[in-house]
């Protein structure tokens, strides 16, 4: 078979695995959250049932073209992040379309879905959507600052912008992981990760009991199904990105599953413990310690 078609099929299979793992992860996390508060929690297959139902609903209303495109852009953000991310180190099948400068592209894709969602939710016209969007963009801008500083620090440290090479440089053993060789960048990035996953204390964007659900207030049925699919992909892909950058990458799927789960669980763990920040508090928070750590990480490697 043609090289490009084979590659495409393998990537599609990877996307399928990642989507399902993301949904299983989200239901597992919700079950853990339920156990923390003494409940049994949702069945493990609940995300698939929800998704089936959402895709079968009759769509009710249109608010214009951008309203349709918002979830599509959001989904593209998650899929794009996945496409250019090498999932398994050293494997041709699971390295997707990673290339020598993929780190910069992935930083861009992190924001891409957010911007698409902002346009779509704005067209929805619900006031709470607009509030959620403005909060989300304000918070995301500040999340990007420590994140970008950490990435620049790593790029200086390893003299490369290719994620595959960064992973390759960490293969010497447990103590060659970036978390030991560059702890400040790891600290900055892991703190900004809390905001990127949108769990409490940084979940004011969707704040279910203040502004009903934020940007997706008007989204229903298929649109909401898109957003949920994207969440599953995005969470795994972002966790995999952090795994590649800071925790030595993965050489097989089991390692990837364990590591992404632990990285995702870090944000859930913090969310279970801390209450929600107001938007100006979270903006200030990201610009203090995480940014300071990021600057420190760059200064050390200059």
């Amino acid at each position: 078979m043609d090289y490009s078609i084979t590659k495409f099929l393998w990537t599609l299979l990877g996307l399928f695995i990642v989507t399902n793992w993301g949904m299983l992860m989200s239901s597992t996390i919700r079950r853990i959250g339920a156990r923390v508060s003494g409940r049994i929690g949702i069945p493990w297959y609940q995300p698939w049932v929800d998704l089936t139902k959402l895709y079968s609903l009759k769509s009710q209303v249109s608010h214009g073209t951008m309203f349709y495109l918002g979830p599509v852009f959001r989904l593209m953000g998650g899929v794009g992040l996945f496409l250019f991310l090498p999932m398994i180190f050293g494997s041709w099948h699971w390295s997707n379309y990673s290339f020598s400068g993929d780190l910069v592209l992935i930083l861009y894709f992190q924001l891409f879905g957010m911007l698409g969602m902002a346009l779509g939710a704005g067209e929805g016209g619900h006031p709470y959507s607009t509030i959620g969007v403005s909060r989300g963009l304000a918070q995301f801008t500040t999340i990007e600052v420590p994140m970008t500083l950490a990435v620049i620090s790593i790029a200086i440290q390893y003299h490369t912008l290719s994620i595959s090479q960064i992973v390759a440089a960490q293969q010497g053993g447990f103590f060659t992981w970036t978390v030991w060789t560059n702890p400040f960048a790891t600290g900055a990035a892991m703190l900004s990760l809390l905001g990127a996953f949108g769990h409490s204390p940084f979940n004011l964007i969707q704040a279910p009991n203040e502004i009903p659900i934020g940007p997706p207030t008007e989204y229903h049925g298929v649109f909401l199904g898109f957003l949920r699919t994207n969440n599953a992909i995005l969470h795994v892909a972002e966790a995999a990105l952090f795994m590649n950058l800071f925790f030595g990458g993965a050489t097989n799927w089991i390692e990837l599953i364990v590591k992404t789960f632990l990285i995702y669980f870090w944000s859930v763990f913090v969310g279970m413990v801390f209450p929600r920040f107001r938007i100006e508090q979270s903006v200030r928070w990201f610009l203090k310690i995480p940014t300071l750590l990021g600057i420190l990480a760059i200064v050390i490697f200059l």
């Binding site: 339920a34 949702i42 009991n209 659900i213 997706p216 207030t217 008007e218 229903h220 909401l224």
Partner: peptide, 22 residues
């Protein structure tokens, strides 16, 4: 939604907007 009754285990969830609820 409290531990005593816990409707989540039956697949019943609360949604804040009419667009997303059945």
């Amino acid at each position: 939604v409290t531990p005593r009754f816990d409707m989540y285990r039956y697949g019943v969830q609360m949604r804040p907007t009419p667009r997303q609820s059945n």
